[in-house]
Computed example of a mutant assay.
Amino acid sequence: MSKAPSSLAADSPDGIDSILLLFICLIGVIVIFTLVGMVGSGIAKRTGRPKTRAEWLGGIALLSVCATVALYIWGALHVMFMESYNMREECAKAGGEAKAAQVDRYSASYFPLRFTCRIDEGGSYDAAVPGYVNPAMGVAFALAIATGAVSVVARDQNRSTGPTVTRGR
């Protein structure tokens, strides 16, 4: 026996807590502003001399982390706003009215970001989170890791090949 469509819209998906997602989004915004401030500070401090490869790569790594966090926030907001009022409409948009009529519950996932419409016969399909969010977040994260690692290696090479200062008596 299935529920009436009006009661489906009032249900909340399994495993989603709006307060937690809102907190995650708030922390993400703080992280983004902090990292952008770090990049800006690094640029402002080094205006008189040319940037090293390590500095450029470190800045790209920080900006990639910002992109990853921003994409996560964007997807999390989609999931959070699905919880409140239009879950059935999004399920209908993603799978059609026939499938949406068979939906008996919803679930959501934080990683990867996903909002799932569960069909009473045991099937399911994803809705609401734009399809580009998770792949783009993965690419931005991989870029952050790669450029961060190369930046550290380049910085260590600069230190080992740079002039050594010895202090004698």
Rank of each mutant, 00 (worst) to 15 (best):
A44H: 12
F33Q: 12
E121K: 14
C66K: 01
R155C: 06
E55W: 14
A76S: 10
E83V: 09
M82T: 05
A98Q: 12
L71P: 03
A149L: 15
A4F: 07
K45Q: 09
R46N: 15
M87A: 02
L62Y: 10
V165C: 12
E55K: 07
E55T: 11
G168N: 14
C117T: 02
G131T: 09
L20F: 13
S41P: 03
D104Q: 06
L71R: 02
Q157K: 14
S160E: 15
D104C: 07
R105Y: 06
S12L: 14
G131I: 03
S124D: 11
A98C: 03
L63R: 02
F23K: 10
L113Y: 00
E83C: 01
R88T: 09
I32Q: 03
I19M: 13
V153I: 15
G122L: 01
S124E: 10
H78M: 03
F33A: 15
C66I: 01
S12I: 11
V36Q: 12
S64M: 05
S109P: 03
P13K: 03
T52I: 08
I60C: 04
V36M: 13
A98M: 06
F23C: 13
S109H: 12
A136C: 13
F23W: 12
V139L: 10
S107W: 00
P13I: 01
V29Y: 02
S6E: 15
F111V: 09
R105I: 00
A10R: 12
T47M: 07
R118S: 08
P50N: 09
G15R: 02
S64L: 02
E83L: 00
A108C: 01
C91R: 00
T147H: 05
A140Y: 03
S64Y: 04
